[in-house]
Design a protein around this nucleic acid. Structure first.
Lengths: 206, 206
DNA sequence: CTTTGTTTTCGACACGGTGTTGAGAATCGC
DNA sequence: GCGATTCTCAACACCGTGTCGAAAACAAAG
């Protein structure tokens, strides 16, 4: 039940639709979303500008579809750590590394999407869906830790959002100044900071 | 030596310039920056749209001026904590509260400015100036703590940026869902998280 | 109170991106 | 082959930006 697309059904020109999404991914990685014109997207897949509107109602709608598509990919990244218990530093770090790898490909527009103050109703809806979903998983994890006696820094719902936000911010900074730190340094710091927020101290392990 | 303005000198119509800045502040708080048209800004101060360009080269330029103006205001907020040593939880918290109070007024556009992936060259320059300045102060503070034996979570330069980023993200979240948490809860969590990132644990005080 | 020069205002224009429409081409099932 | 759906595109209307040059407002002398 895709409520977003401007067309209804299942045909051959769906290739074009996917092609547009792929082209968008690529273009959004070079330029900021606002600077990519619909004309560019259309030409990239070999149709006229006005033809774009057969597939999507607007750039907004395309963006929402893209975001939608990306949510699924995100789910598995953190699963390992989310399913485990206690610090499990290594699992967390692996998760963050997987996440980082995706940001290498889609970082620019992901960042723009996640941080934009008001990205139109379409995107906002999809994004909020992502956040709540992601947050629920984290909350669950944190609550389990609380039950086991962890000294968390604040209410699980808030903490979850902060942890997610910190990740986004840190990645964004890393890609803006890749020379400033090594990947390992950055991941280590992020892991450590996350654990500290939840467990109060991490000077025991490692 | 204002290098940003499109006009050279010191006259009476400077009132208009300031009026435009004030109008912009107000409008940027209601709508996202992109949605505010130059026409709106002009009409708000009672001139024709094309008259705007006498005062600023573009919305960009106005934004840069606004940002510029805001940097000074930010300086004092954290001074107390930055000048102190060790945890000094109360000073940190007071600083964060002061910061929050400013966000109450200018939060929307500050957020947009700080988080935008590429806000044109003008703004980018001003913003980077702010970040480095802010970061230097934090780095200094953290390095002093390291010297005193604090177990920081990573390289001071990175940590400083993360702490600042976390603040922005958390405030943004708070203002988007003001009902979800009380102000005190939010500030407390943010304070605690910040301290944990720097000192490893904070279960001793408070 | 003119004259002269500077400061400020604005209408008219050119440009570029968006979104719509309606007519025609391609494609597919039968 | 021949309808019906699926797809394509040129032409148009719209809106926001930025530029220009002519004129109005103003100030400071003369």
């Amino acid at each position: 039940m895709p409520a977003i697309k401007s067309r209804r059904a299942p045909t051959k020109g769906d290739q074009r639709e996917q092609a547009l999404l792929d082209a968008a991914r690529a273009l959004f990685q070079e330029k900021s979303i606002g600077k990519v014109t619909i004309d560019e997207l259309a030409t990239a897949v070999g149709i006229a500008r006005s033809g774009f509107y057969f597939y999507f109602e607007s750039k907004q709608a395309l963006l929402a579809a893209l975001c939608d598509q990306s949510i699924g990919e995100n789910d598995e990244e953190m699963a390992e750590w989310l399913d485990s218990d206690g610090h499990d530093r290594d699992a967390l770090r692996r998760g963050l590394r997987r996440s980082l790898d995706r940001w290498r490909v889609d970082g620019r527009w992901l960042r723009e999407l996640f941080l934009a103050p008001d990205p139109g109703p379409d995107v906002h809806a999809v994004r909020e869906r992502f956040f709540t979903k992601n947050n629920m998983a984290f909350c669950e994890r944190i609550r389990r830790d609380v039950a086991a006696g962890a000294s968390v820094a604040g209410p699980p719902e808030l903490l979850a959002r902060m942890v997610l936000g910190l990740r986004v911010i840190t990645f964004a900074h890393y890609f803006e100044f890749p020379e400033a730190f090594t990947e390992d340094e950055m991941l280590e710091t992020l892991t450590e900071a996350t654990l500290r927020m939840i467990y109060g101290t991490t000077t025991d392990q490692r």
